[in-house]
């Protein structure tokens, strides 16, 4: 059996060790005048192989530096998801800008087309739902961070299929909180470019913070979702990661909006993916 720990390469902070050695860097908050761009449509489409809800959230961009309140939802859009066999579902707007279908469940190996008609513009995207890859096991190792925080490394073991071109997103959840709610957690992405067909051990790190910023506690249940995504979804998250401040290196190139599979200039993504989940209790 072969195992591998691969995410080190992507931990950009290691590149800054030389900087720390050579210099004492300092930071300050500065005020910068930013232009207010005209509001632009953002579509987030998710379809899984589970009978949780297929969901499409449509909104418009807001002004930078102003709190989230001004990111306006887009209502009265016509939202449909069609598979390559011609089955079509229309999603209902259950909350402002939030379109769902309780009956739509994706099937792996199918290609899905999302179509959104809003304000007489048409946006569409195609996403392929890859075969499900299951998590074999999880284990946890505590890590003492240098700043005094305690962290947990969660190791996710799974077997990459023989065919190449598998892309994954690994998503931790705490207790019953929604996914992506762990503050400061990175977007964990993996592809099989270097280790196609092998047993994979991918490490994800979650920090326990002291005081008010505590994000996880001993006794919490951590659920890890292994999302098998297509290449376009992987690239969306990879390019998203490149501009997210928590993941960004100060020397990275001119930032750009993430690569999207949506047409007509829309921001966001439409991702069809299969999900496998496993739970572990922090001890």
């Amino acid at each position: 059996m072969k195992t591998i720990i691969l995410n080190i390469w992507r931990n950009k902070e290691f590149f800054f060790i030389p900087l720390l050695v050579f210099a004492v860097s300092c930071q300050k908050i500065v005020s910068i005048d930013l232009n207010a761009a005209a509001p632009h449509i953002v579509i987030e489409g998710n379809l899984t192989d589970q009978l949780d809800t297929a969901s499409v959230v449509i909104s418009k961009t807001g002004t930078y530096f102003v709190s989230s309140v001004n990111v306006p939802p887009v209502s009265h859009a016509l939202v449909t998801i069609t598979d390559d066999l011609g089955n079509s579902d229309t999603l209902k707007e259950i909350r402002s800008g939030n379109y769902q279908s309780a009956t739509l469940k994706g099937v792996t190996g199918r290609r899905y087309t999302l179509k959104v008609v809003s304000e007489s513009e048409v946006y569409s995207a195609i996403s392929y739902m890859p075969k499900k890859v299951t998590i074999d096991s999880l284990y946890v190792k505590p890590v003492h961070e240098r700043d005094g925080d305690i962290g947990y490394d969660i190791y996710v073991l799974f077997k990459d299929p023989q065919e190449s071109g598998n892309y994954y997103r690994i998503r931790p959840r705490v207790n019953s909180l929604p996914p992506d709610s762990i503050q400061g957690a990175r977007t964990f992405l993996y592809n099989d470019k270097l280790a196609n067909g092998n047993e994979i051990t991918e490490r994800i790190s979650i920090r326990i913070r002291s005081g008010e910023r505590r994000t996880v506690n001993i006794g919490d249940t951590i659920t890890v979702d292994l999302l098998s995504v297509d290449q376009a979804t992987y690239e969306f998250y990879k390019t998203l990661q490149a501009i997210r401040s928590s993941d960004r290196s100060p020397t990275s190139l001119s930032p750009a909006n993430p690569n999207t599979n949506l047409s007509n200039g829309s921001l966001g993504y439409f991702a069809a993916y299969s999900v496998d989940s496993k739970k572990i209790i922090l001890q």
Binding site: P178, P255, N257, P258
Partner: peptide, 28 residues
């Protein structure tokens, strides 16, 4: 000349900067 965001939006519940013009801003 640098690229700064001119807006923002949510993806998966987290704020993401929205970029419009390339190198449209200046560092001090």
């Amino acid at each position: 000349a640098v690229t700064f965001p001119s807006g923002n939006y949510f993806i998966d519940g987290r704020l993401v900067p929205y970029y419009t013009e390339r190198n449209g801003y200046r560092m001090p």
